[in-house]
Design a protein around this nucleic acid. Structure first.
Length: 456
RNA sequence: GUCGCCUUCGUCUAUCGGUUAGGACCCCAGGUUUUCAUCCUGGUAAGAGGAGUUCGAUUCUCCUAGGCGAUGCCA
């Protein structure tokens, strides 16, 4: 058993492509088969090396490893040429020299008559020896195939025209290369977006002309934007790497993506192992799904909450570097991360929350400071008592805060809140005693002092 | 226009003809909590429309509508 992901390198790896890759990957793993990566770069005009790199990076970040490839179609032109020659020799294909003008005119006339726009086979019997090469599609009968997700699909041959399999410059086109490659690479399951359903009958006819066995087809519904329109840039990030940049964990993205069009009862959280163990083509939905970032965010938060600090630190590396946050000198990073796990929806948020442990802030949030620092007495009491504290630990610090509360006859909030602001600068911090412990005694005292000065 | 595919809460989905149509996200209301967050409890919310088959349709068939896709010397 073998499946493949065959993107064309005309842009970054996007969400839809990633989901297709994930499904093909999961199905291969589940069957203990191979997963192949093939770059469909026959369109030299639009294919770029940068896009190839972007796709490879995306696959790598997601952790979708391939057993074979990446194969490049541009390196297999000789092979396609042989197949095209064979079809020509067997009179299953022919040269066509129709001009663009004629084709355009034909299309317009047919559309006006309310008919389907398609090539009329004008050059079929002309025995030309140059131009594009067209495949002689059967003129009658119907093509029926059983799609693993859509079920039985049938299209009449009279709806299909003679497709171009080689351009006038001799290079092969998609419908030819995909068939040759899937055959040569022994792909048993063609899992791809359902925008290819219409191509499938053409391809099946090619398989038959070549006398090759058909693979299984599974056409995945598209992913739409939140407004039901096809996912595009205006819906926000569509590039997989943009999600890395926004602070998502690859496992969370994968988990979100696998639930888009696939389900296993009421289960929402799936580890990679569970995806592989439970995935099944028969559980894939037929209808397109809308991308919902809020649910992705919820999943990401859940993954952050439950990850080990070590794992998070690994993923945090890129962000720390990106935001130039130096964590070597200062609090124990894994303790800081741990304190932030329940309050970060993304790694970007986590980096924000972590800065206070490693960097000084310029000034306090004005609005909050005006409110919290109105009375400097609690701050002075804290500074006084904490500077005398010898064992710098959260529980000891907590005792001191309580003491201050008792001494002044005020509630915890009246002391804890100003303290929190004094240490964080913006009030965004967790358990205040732990925060103080991690920040360390010198810095804590320094910031308290700064807060008192602000209060004056 | 033509052909193909699709249609359950706002969103992701469960349901293998008989259910008070279930779960999750979001949202709302409570509770826990040293802010925020986490966590817990509860709530709002759905079978596109119309025929038919059937004792009984969300589930099967057909029609309509709507959406998406294809209609490229793109993939």
């Amino acid at each position: 058993m073998k499946s493949r992901f065959a993107p064309s390198p005309t842009g970054y790896l996007h969400i839809g492509g990633a989901r297709t890759a994930l499904f093909a990957w999961a199905w291969a793993k589940k069957q203990q088969g191979n997963f192949v990566l093939r770059i469909e770069d026959t369109d030299k005009e639009r294919s770029t090396q940068a896009s190839v790199d972007a796709i490879l990076d995306g696959m790598n970040w997601l952790g979708l490893d391939y057993d074979e490839g990446p194969f490049y179609q541009t390196q297999r032109f000789e092979r396609y040429k042989v197949v095209v020659e064979q079809l020509l020799d067997e009179k299953k294909a022919y040269y066509c020299e129709c001009s663009k003008e004629r084709l355009d005119g034909l299309r317009e006339t047919l559309m006006q008559k309310g008919e389907k726009a398609m090539y009329d086979g004008c050059c079929r019997g002309k025995k030309l020896s140059s131009g594009v090469v067209r495949f002689k599609n059967p003129t009658d009968g119907i093509v029926v195939f059983n799609d693993a997700v859509k079920g039985k699909i049938s299209i009449a041959n009279k709806e299909i025209d003679d497709l171009i399999i080689a351009r006038s410059d001799g290079t092969p086109t998609y419908n030819l290369t995909v068939v040759v490659d899937d055959h040569d690479m022994a792909i048993s399951h063609v899992i791809r977006g359902d925008d290819h359903i219409n191509n499938t009958p053409r391809q099946i006819n090619l398989y038959q002309a070549l006398d090759w066995n058909l693979p299984e087809f599974a056409h995945l519904p598209m992913i739409l934007g939140s407004d039901g329109a096809r996912l595009s840039k205006r819906h926000g990030a569509v590039s997989v790497m943009a999600y890395r940049d926004a602070g998502f964990l690859p496992e969370a993205l994968l988990n979100y993506l696998v639930r888009l069009g696939w389900s296993h009862g009421d289960q929402e959280i799936f580890s990679l192992d569970e995806i592989v163990a439970l995935f099944d083509l028969k559980d894939i939905n037929k209808a397109p799904a809308s991308f919902n970032e809020e649910k992705l965010l919820w999943l990401n938060q859940d993954y952050i909450k439950n990850a080990t600090p070590e794992c998070l630190i690994q993923h945090l590396g890129w962000h720390l570097n990106n935001q130039k946050v130096e964590t070597d000198n200062g609090a124990d990073l894994s303790l800081v991360v741990k304190s932030l796990q329940e309050r970060s929806k993304t790694l970007v948020e986590m980096v924000e929350g972590l800065k206070m442990f490693y960097q000084a802030f310029d000034e306090f949030d004005r609005k909050l400071a005006n409110k919290q620092f109105k009375d400097k007495v609690p701050l002075e009491a804290l500074l006084e008592k904490l500077s005398q504290l010898e064992v710098w630990q959260a529980n000891e610090i907590k005792v001191v805060i309580k003491q201050v509360c008792d001494d002044l006859g005020i509630g915890f909030g009246k002391v804890g809140q100003p303290f929190r602001l004094a240490l964080s600068g913006n009030g965004n911090a967790g358990s205040i005693d732990l925060v103080a412990e991690l920040i360390g005694k010198p810095t804590t005292l320094k910031r308290l002092d700064k807060a008192i000065k602000y209060a004056c």
